[in-house]
């Protein structure tokens, strides 16, 4: 038998945010957007450094620990790209993350699939160089490719039914 205790604790955050004063929500969001501009240059530098590291890690076919390092690096690109108004680059990085995650779970990491992702990352770093429709098609192609690969994935430990 499983003992389950239910309770309703005080929500301190709820009490704090409703105190008199503060800002209009819309003003707060606008102020935050303005604040974020201060870090956009640092984000772009970090993205470029992470991309350079990614290309270096892929100079020879990645395997073993290098796949894990590559995953972490590409994941950083995915997390930062949207902050710098590079959402397509972020989407390509997420696709690469899915591919690398598949490899870390026992799937095969084909050099062609890696090469395609590297090329797309290079292109989408400067998205204005190609029309938006073409960018969408490229990202859709990546989705289809990684989706097919994931379908062939070996069962992960998470697929096992959990107790309770």
């Amino acid at each position: 038998m499983t003992l389950v205790r239910y309770f309703k604790p005080d929500n301190r955050l709820a009490k704090v945010v409703t105190l008199p004063g503060g800002k209009l929500v819309e003003t707060a969001v606008d102020d935050a957007r303005i604040e974020l501009l201060q870090v956009s240059d640092a984000c772009l530098q970090e993205i470029d450094a992470a991309l350079d590291h990614t290309y270096r890690l892929c100079e020879t076919p990645p395997a073993g620990d290098r796949v894990a390092e590559l995953y972490t690096t590409v994941r950083d690109v995915a997390g930062l790209a949207g902050v710098c108004a590079l959402p397509d680059l972020g989407a390509a990085a997420l696709s690469f993350c899915a591919l690398l995650d598949h490899a870390q779970n026992g799937g095969r990491l084909a050099p062609d699939h890696v090469a395609v992702h590297l090329n797309v990352l290079r292109i989408l770093r400067h998205p204005d160089a190609i029309p938006e429709d073409d960018r969408c098609k490229v990202l859709e192609s990546l989705d289809v490719m990684v989706g097919r690969i994931a379908q062939k994935a070996p069962p992960s430990p998470d697929d096992a039914p959990s107790a309770g």
Binding site: R5, F7, V25, A32, L36, L80, G82
Partner: peptide
């Protein structure tokens, strides 16, 4: 991620308003 001010704000407001109970089990 990537986080945006709008998404973070919405989540803060949601969490502040949420009525879900807490529960505790062995797991």
């Amino acid at each position: 991620k990537p986080v945006s001010p709008r998404v973070i704000m919405d989540r803060i407001l949601w969490v502040a308003r949420e009525q879900r109970q807490f529960l505790q089990t062995d797991l």
